[in-house]
């Protein structure tokens, strides 16, 4: 994606961003407008970062596992992360830092469980990782439900956590933490972009990568660790948001984007735009906000079907 195409895409993106922040703003009285804009900008930043992270992490996972149907949701990472987050919010009421540490720990755990499950299933590797990811996801989703019942959480909380919602309440006391998380996301993202050449070679063939001088195992686990960190951070804020990491990279591939660097940077723009539109729909289509996962799955199921059809013949 170069030059003109990128320009058109960016224009659309900025237009979407403008609509997102400006929508029905004139309905509000002048003196509260600033407050509303502030709230929307915080939400906008969360939406954009989540879109970028969830999509690029999907793209990277698809390269690492050589399976176009993977993202953090399918692999069970988000399920684990959500469980860790809720677990910590039960025991350490509301401490964001501890919650995110728990979320990261359980994301890692779920990824490990998922991987060890899949290595024990004697089937096509593409299928086995999907099945084990699904099992881990079900396991942690159930645990989330049980934990919520035990901790007497209201049912709407579950409704939004399991399907994802960007309606996060930012607390000004935590502003410094938010900024530091944002910085770590930026840094790790830059790191992954720098790792795109290793990802490229690893996606060709692991033996070739190895003899070309890439430490395949080290790179695999290190990149996976970073993806898990990013995902667990996002899950702590928005809950489980799936599918966006599958569709955008696959659409990009269909459009002829093949190199990891282009795929990842394209995912940033595509993921951010898609999530922005989806959140807009989820925010305004009904009298109350519907979870973003509902909108996204309706969007993406035809695509998922198409991808499965093309990959499991």
């Amino acid at each position: 994606m170069k030059g003109k195409k990128l320009l058109i895409f960016l224009t659309i993106f900025f237009l979407l961003s403008f609509i997102y922040i400006d929508f029905k703003l004139s309905n509000f009285e002048k003196d509260v407008r600033n407050e509303i804009i502030k709230m929307r900008i915080f939400r906008y930043i969360l939406v954009i970062t989540s879109g970028m992270v969830l999509t690029s992490s999907g793209a990277v996972m698809q390269i690492l596992f050589k399976n176009p149907l993977l993202d953090s949701y399918v692999l069970g990472i988000s399920g684990g992360g959500l469980f860790g987050f809720i677990l910590s919010s039960v025991y350490f009421k509301g401490n964001l830092l501890i919650s995110i540490f728990f979320s990261f720990f359980f994301s890692l755990l779920s990824a490990l469980i998922s991987l060890s499950f899949s290595s024990n299933i004697k089937s096509d590797r593409k299928v086995s990782i999907l099945i084990s990811g699904l099992l881990v996801n079900i396991l942690f989703s159930s645990l989330v439900i049980i934990l919520s019942i035990f901790s007497k959480r209201d049912i709407t909380f579950l409704f939004y956590a399991l399907m994802g919602s960007f309606n996060h309440i930012f607390i000004s006391k935590n502003l410094f933490l938010y900024i530091s998380f944002f910085v770590t996301i930026i840094l790790t993202t830059v790191f992954i972009i720098f790792k795109s050449k290793e990802l490229d070679i690893m996606s060709i063939d692991e033996d070739i990568a190895s003899t070309s001088g890439v430490n395949v195992k080290k790179n695999f686990f290190f990149i996976l660790l970073i993806i898990i960190y990013q995902t667990s951070l996002i899950v702590s804020f928005v809950g489980m948001v799936g599918f966006v990491g599958i569709i955008i990279p696959n659409i990009l591939r269909m459009a002829g984007v093949v190199k990891s660097k282009d795929l990842i940077s394209g995912s940033f723009l595509g993921g951010a735009s898609l999530i922005l539109v989806a959140d807009f729909i989820s925010k305004y289509s009904f009298s109350f906000e519907i979870p973003i996962g509902v909108v996204l799955s309706l969007f993406s199921l035809p695509f998922i079907f198409w991808i499965v059809k093309n990959n499991f013949e």
């Binding site: 509000f28 009285e29 509260v32 407050e35 509303i36 709230m39 929307r40 709407t156 409704f159 939004y160 309606n167 309440i169 009298s287 109350f288 906000e289």
Partner: peptide
């Protein structure tokens, strides 16, 4: 004015109603 529903409250609306 409506500022919420049976699922969740409308946060922007609440702010605007001061």
């Amino acid at each position: 004015e409506i500022a919420g529903s049976f699922i969740d409250i409308d946060y922007e609306k609440v702010v605007s109603l001061k």
